[in-house]
Design a protein around this nucleic acid. Sequence first.
DNA 1: GATGAATGAGCCTTCATTCAT
DNA 2: TATGAATGAAGGCTCATTCAT
Lengths: 207, 207, 207, 207
Amino acid sequence: MSTKQAGAERRRTFTETARRAQIVDAAAQVMATEGYSGTSIARIASHLGISKGVITYHFRTKDEILRELVLRFFDEGWQHMEPAVDAATGARGKILAWVGSQLEFFSRHRTRFLATGEIMANHRGADGQLAFAEELDEEVTALSGIIVRGQQDGELREFDPRTIATLIVKTSSAVLETWAADPQTDLQAQSAALLDFIDHAIAKEKP
Amino acid sequence: MSTKQAGAERRRTFTETARRAQIVDAAAQVMATEGYSGTSIARIASHLGISKGVITYHFRTKDEILRELVLRFFDEGWQHMEPAVDAATGARGKILAWVGSQLEFFSRHRTRFLATGEIMANHRGADGQLAFAEELDEEVTALSGIIVRGQQDGELREFDPRTIATLIVKTSSAVLETWAADPQTDLQAQSAALLDFIDHAIAKEKP
Amino acid sequence: MSTKQAGAERRRTFTETARRAQIVDAAAQVMATEGYSGTSIARIASHLGISKGVITYHFRTKDEILRELVLRFFDEGWQHMEPAVDAATGARGKILAWVGSQLEFFSRHRTRFLATGEIMANHRGADGQLAFAEELDEEVTALSGIIVRGQQDGELREFDPRTIATLIVKTSSAVLETWAADPQTDLQAQSAALLDFIDHAIAKEKP
Amino acid sequence: MSTKQAGAERRRTFTETARRAQIVDAAAQVMATEGYSGTSIARIASHLGISKGVITYHFRTKDEILRELVLRFFDEGWQHMEPAVDAATGARGKILAWVGSQLEFFSRHRTRFLATGEIMANHRGADGQLAFAEELDEEVTALSGIIVRGQQDGELREFDPRTIATLIVKTSSAVLETWAADPQTDLQAQSAALLDFIDHAIAKEKP
DNA sequence: GATGAATGAGCCTTCATTCAT
DNA sequence: TATGAATGAAGGCTCATTCAT
């Protein structure tokens, strides 16, 4: 979960802040419905009923829009998850709190979850590499830390922490993607199943 | 797993067949390294050292190339999985055979696996919908059938068949994606962990 | 050398005058370093650390800024040259005073000299013609007048006055451009060589 | 005078060669009449009555067009000048042959001379530096070589070779620019005056 | 006076596709 | 079969200018 900010930010007026939020929101909506390559600046502008120029006035590049969308979403998500993870006790508890609170937060922001997924899977920097690979990695690393401590305390079985951390993150995403693709899905049930699986997979004692 | 063919096919000469295969292969390689939006016809042509015209001569549209790439990969995959699934006995056995043989096949075709993933996540038809959503659904449906029979035979616990079928498919993909992103990953170990999880999740008796 | 003013000018406050000068100066600096097409209003504004709006508030169009920059520079230049030319006696003396004082003045304002050069070489009016061709012509005409009188007085050889006047103006610019491009150049030496050349070229008697 | 080529060049068909020449010619014409910043790909295309796409099909970037225009012009020019310079004897002879043949060649290609001037004065690379500064420098260096030998042979006065070489190149350009701006100008007369000047400026003995 | 906001035209470039040879 | 040639739409982005506050 990243807390980095996109460099020096000049002071912003109220209108500017509102416009930027509005544009980022529109970008998320277009991204969620039309997909990454269907999300052009022109499309975002017409979605808002404004001219393309407004967008390039408030954001210097398209990359800046996507970056803001993704990082803000991650920040908000982490701010929601952190208290839950802190409040939980034990490694198993913290991990279940992590996944559970993440599922809860993301599920309350379906559009932005979809948009973020599109961006992370497709957006590339000038070097041709995926632009947000690092962000995913940070989450895996953080989760690994919890796992390592759980193993030292004898609460968790022995296994490679990063492998399992990765698996947890990916399966969590998989559940959300399924639900996001078809909101009819009983997310509650799937979440429960997922948490049960994870707990079985990592606990030393049978849960 | 789809067995559909890409529409009316005129008879093809040997050369034609070879050229098409060559183009589809090049498309897969570009797709795997450059991603969906980095895969233009021009890029595929220059990868092969031929002119763009050759490609549009053999394939009427870009969509036709991607369709052939995805469907052929699924067909080949199913041809590899089918004997394994048929040979296995019981629902649990068949499901483990399904996932296991799929992991095995896909892992032997990393490039095409990556390409297919890019296409399925991004390629959209004229209607703006993901073009291959249906194909994924077919696999879930087929798996669901096995699960239903397993529940009728008392071999599997009671749960919504589609929910779990979806989870199985997605987690399997997740494991492969992790490995494909970083081939250093010990796929053998991750596969074993995945199979173990699935078996625990679905079996009536403790395995 | 032009003495025209940039059209109707309303009375200006002290602040207004200062702001305009500040903006024109910034424009000259950007022009000198970034070239004509690198000089946008946005770039000038950011060079001053102010908003674009300030500039378009004080100048109705970009053309007005460039016009003021060029004409003011020419006016200042002429105000510096005029006493020297007036004080000199004879055609040869006046011409050498003209070129010498011009070299001296321009060399003390390298940035504005460069900027003016960029603008005169590139800036075009709505009709597509170079906007300041006329200004150069005025200088040639004025110099021609001195030459004609020198020929009538028997001080200068016979030749087409405009041809030589043009050559004088251009070679003078050439020397300055060379120096401006690389301020290491020994301008003093080059100036001396230039003046010597001109005197030889026009004098009836060997100098 | 540059003889460098713009990197690896694939084989070209007759049509391709013709189209490229046609486009470069059109670019020169637009450049000569509309100036550097008035020369857009769209304008070149409409000048030829073709679509913009034709141009970007034959040239990958606009820079490639301008590079070809400038370098080909320089190459042709040098091919015209070289025999004249080689045939001349002595430093004075070679320098006069240089300038004279250059004036002659450029004056026979007014449009391209103007276009090349616009490009060299304005075209910048990604680094923000003038893209063809080097080419000008090469000419000065070559001329300097002749001057140095002339000084060693006692044919030329003592002075800094590069300074005078630069002056020669610039004054030659100045004469051509004056004529190009107004083709009524008697180029013959101006050329003679220029050659006379140069000879006086550099010869040890009075010419 | 000053500024933030918005606009629309234009820029270079990439692209899938069509067509004549 | 293969290819070179051409097209027109769309991409992200910069720009001078206008306007309300």
